[in-house]
Design a protein around this nucleic acid. Structure first.
Lengths: 187, 187, 187, 187
DNA sequence: AATGAATGAGCTTTCATTCAT
DNA sequence: AATGAATGAAAGCTCATTCAT
């Protein structure tokens, strides 16, 4: 019954994600959002009761997807798993930037808080997985041992931010970066 | 003699920089700025005629400093110059983030536009310098040749974003990252 | 046969009355109303075409009830009639408060205007009845004559607002107040 | 320094009081308020950070005035003190109505909460004073003893709501009501 | 007939900018 | 020159009412 919806929840969250990445949390307005959707601004409030809820839901969806992909990786071979993991991260390379805004959300709203708590948990799940794989790889003698693990992890994770100026396809790009990370830049 | 000056232009720009990095361009307000200065909000207009001018001036100052440091590097030995350059960048590791916001400034204001043009030029000066050093290094046989230069440059430049989780002092940190970048992570 | 009616008109008006008394005219929303009914907000418009109509109908129903009770009182003995009348008023002690909001309703709506006119008339019927009984009582020598009737009427009518802090049952409460009104508070 | 204010805080609170009494808490808008002041709506926010703060400050001012008047009454003779007290209340006969809205203010705002706490305290101070005077009067044998004190207090306090249809000047009106309350309405 | 969805009008609040002392 | 005060534009949000299934 009732009319048919003018935009789906998925559309809404997709557009939200794009706009937050483009304009940052503070630059993201519901007016802006509605301009990129088919309906009126007030219609959005039928689905989410305020801005925070929208952003939180958006972040949850993004990290959920990543966590799902990350947890389906076969971890038998640590190095191979790391390479796959890099690819997973790469596909959401703006993840970090997006989640960086999470701390700006100050809200009492229960739904938003729940979503943010989920994001938090997913975040630490991913960290744990990464540490686990690194330890495993180091045990297998695949990684240099003259450096503290956090430093290696940091450089690995930071790869996702590398600007892909030549627009190499994601799969190749992630594999390329992995090779550089492993072997270094010197001849 | 007039009243005592309530804050200097330098203070103003320093605080601006900090606040933009903390809150992002859209999260940066003149109200916020004045709260972190000793005078009244309206006094800011004695120095700059609007928000965009302030931000542009701030960016100009930051990149000027970098450019000055970068251009005083002795480029005789390419690899050594690159390491020094990394350190210069590192000291303003948030540069990228800051300049990323430059594109958000839409203004007609002449002064702001001039400052932004300067930023633009400095930006390309730095890129040229970087390319020059990379080519030199490659000619000297110091860098692998199986990869296009832009990819190497990208990974090099991206080093500055690596999160320094263990708070290693900047000088050591930049040198550490440079070693990893050169030699890779494998044993 | 159509769908089952989700709420009756009586339910609607009862809830309306309760909510207006609780939240005042301006604090009364159709959203609030629908939350206290079983159906959807839009269903309300099957019964009444707007908010004003609902409130007007509600007021009409309340004052109708009172007028009916008030007009069935045996007026042979003025003082006894007054006591009974007080009881009638008391049962709708919030009447005054409710009707006070009537003046806030600005509408062109015919149905609402008709209902408000009815309320007006009933109001004056009650005033007339009250005056009649007071005159009668005064003639019978039951009331002091050193005071203008309107003053006595005012104090009488105002009795219904007396806060019943000890929650005495209505019947006793109205009779108690009547005694005080008659005899005063002095020893 | 700075411009001169377009309205004083006193004006603001006076108008607020009038409008709340006229329209109730929910019917009171800042737009309405600004329409009854000389400046723009946003100017109000220079003095109070939101609606709740304004209303709370208004209530505080009203009850402060009353409390001050009430506490300067000479309580040596209980009955005389009561009559004076009635007059004090009468001058702010809408007090009750105004304070009734206090419970509608749900806020986290510290300033508003402090003002509301003050209102609460003043309220209970007044109740205590009233009870004290009633007990004193009863001891002096001035009041009937066949009724519980709360009932007498309730009828006394309720006097202030009596509609003054003939617009008797306040001083006379309060004294008139007091006589009726003491002596009753019977001949 | 009942209702889920859409929407514009209107209120609250914030902030860049201007004014006047 | 410095600043307290004023203000309009724009964002956030709510609600009465209408639409279309």
């Amino acid at each position: 019954m009732g009319r048919k919806q003018s935009f789906t929840e998925t559309e809404l969250l997709d557009v939200t994600k794009r706009l937050i990445l483009e304009h940052g949390y503070d630059g993201f307005h519901l007016k802006l959002l509605s301009q990129h959707l088919s309906g009126a601004r007030s219609t959005i409030y039928q689905y989410y009761s305020n801005k925070e809820e929208i952003v939180a839901a958006c972040m949850k969806r993004v990290i959920s997807q990543i966590m799902q992909n990350a947890s389906s990786i076969d971890e038998t071979d640590a190095m191979s798993a790391l390479q796959q993991l890099l690819h997973v991260y790469m596909e959401e390379s703006k993840l970090h930037q997006l989640l960086g805004d999470a701390s700006k959300i100050k809200t009492q709203n229960v739904k938003a808080l729940e979503d943010l708590a989920f994001v938090e948990q997913a975040h630490s799940f991913l960290k744990v997985q990464l540490s686990r794989l690194f330890e495993q790889a180091q045990k297998e003698g695949k990684l240099r041992e003259d450096l503290p693990l956090p430093v290696l992890i940091g450089t690995f994770f930071n790869l996702i931010n590398t600007p892909n100026l030549m627009n190499v396809p994601t799969q190749q790009w992630s594999s390329l970066l992995f090779q550089i990370w492993i072997g270094g830049s010197k001849r």
